[in-house]
Design a binder for these strands. Structure first.
Length: 267
DNA sequence: ATGGTCGCGAGGCGA
C-alpha cells in the first residue's frame, strides 16, 4: 500500500495537480492538509472519478483536512476529543478543522494540520503546543489500549525536529523564527517517545532534504527549505515500511503548492 | 530591500 501526505495549500487551486499526482504516483491513500474550502466547494469529482473514497473536514478558507483512499475508508472522525480551540485576541475560541481520522485497509490514518505558531511569543504558539500535547495524549492512549494497533499520524507538523531540517539554523535562531524551538521539538519528541516512528527519514537522509519551501523570498529557487511534513507510524505499522520518498518534482513549476508530497510504501 | 509570493475573496489575513 502506498500512502502519502500533502499540504496542498488550497485543493481547488490544485485540483488538476492532485489528480495527476494520484495517478502518476499510484497512491492508495492520501492525507491532505489545507483544503481551504467547505464541503459545498470541495472538488469531490477529483477523487470519485478515479475510484477514491474521500472524507473532508473544513469550514472556510482556513485550514481544512481530508483523507482520500481507494482501499477503504471507514469510521471517519472529525477532530480528536478535547481538541484545544483557538480564539485570537479574546475572540470566541473555536475548534478548527485540523484533524481527520479514518481506517483504510486496517490502518488508522490521521491527517493532521498542526497549528503554525506564528511567532515564538504569540498566543498561537501556546495553542500549537497545547494542541500537540492533547493529540499526543490520544496517540499514547491508543497504543496503551492496543499495542499492535496500526496507526499512521500523517501531516504538516510545522516542526523541524533537527537542525539539518532547515536550510540555515543560524538564520532561524538569529531571527527568532518558529518551528525549531525547544518546546516545539520536545512536543514532537513526545510522539517518538510514545512509540511513533518517522518512517520517511531513514529513506531520505539529510542534510538538504526538505518538504516545504516558502513562496516568499523564492526559497525553492534558492534551495532553502524545511522538513516539516512527516509520516509517523505506530510500532506494528512501522515494521511494514519498505520505502519512502519526497516528491520534490511536485514543488516545481507554475501552480505548485509550497509543500511537496511525502510518500511511503507499506508491505 | 522592515522586502519577497501565494490563495481566498474582494481588504486583509494567514502562511
Amino acid at each position: 500500500m502506498r500512502i502519502a501526505t500533502w499540504n496542498v495549500n488550497s485543493l481547488r487551486a490544485r485540483a488538476d495537480r492532485v489528480e495527476e499526482f494520484l495517478e502518476r504516483q499510484d497512491v492508495d491513500v492520501l492525507a491532505i492538509q489545507e483544503t481551504k474550502c467547505k464541503d459545498e466547494s470541495f472538488p469531490w469529482e477529483v477523487f470519485e472519478h478515479n475510484g477514491y473514497d474521500v472524507a473532508h473536514f473544513g469550514f472556510s478558507q482556513w485550514n481544512g483536512v481530508a483523507i482520500a483512499s481507494r482501499v477503504g475508508l471507514k469510521d471517519v472522525e472529525r477532530t480528536f476529543p478535547n481538541q484545544p480551540p483557538f480564539g485570537k485576541g479574546g475572540k470566541d475560541p473555536v475548534q478548527e478543522a485540523r484533524a481527520i481520522g479514518a481506517t483504510c485497509d486496517g490502518v488508522r490514518v490521521w491527517s493532521l494540520y498542526v497549528p503554525n505558531g506564528r511567532s515564538r511569543e504569540d498566543e498561537h504558539m501556546t495553542y500549537k503546543l497545547a494542541w500537540l500535547r492533547k493529540m499526543r495524549e490520544h496517540a499514547s492512549a491508543w497504543l496503551a489500549e492496543d499495542p499492535q494497533a496500526q496507526i499512521l499520524l500523517a501531516g504538516d507538523w510545522n516542526i523541524a525536529p533537527e537542525d539539518e531540517d532547515v536550510w540555515d539554523i543560524d538564520f532561524f535562531e538569529k531571527n527568532r523564527i518558529t518551528h525549531v524551538t525547544g518546546p516545539e521539538r520536545a512536543a514532537f519528541q513526545e510522539f517518538v517517545d510514545a512509540g511513533y516512528t518517522d518512517i520517511v527519514r531513514p529513506h531520505t537522509p539529510g542534510p538538504g532534504v526538505y518538504t516545504f519551501w516558502d513562496y516568499t523570498s523564492l526559497r525553492f529557487q534558492k534551495r532553502q527549505g524545511m522538513r516539516i511534513d512527516f509520516l509517523l507510524a505506530s510500532p506494528a505499522l512501522a515494521q511494514h515500511a519498505e520505502h519512502a520518498f519526497i516528491d520534490k518534482d511536485e514543488r516545481r513549476g507554475k501552480g505548485a503548492s509550497d509543500h511537496a508530497p511525502v510518500l511511503a510504501d507499506l508491505s
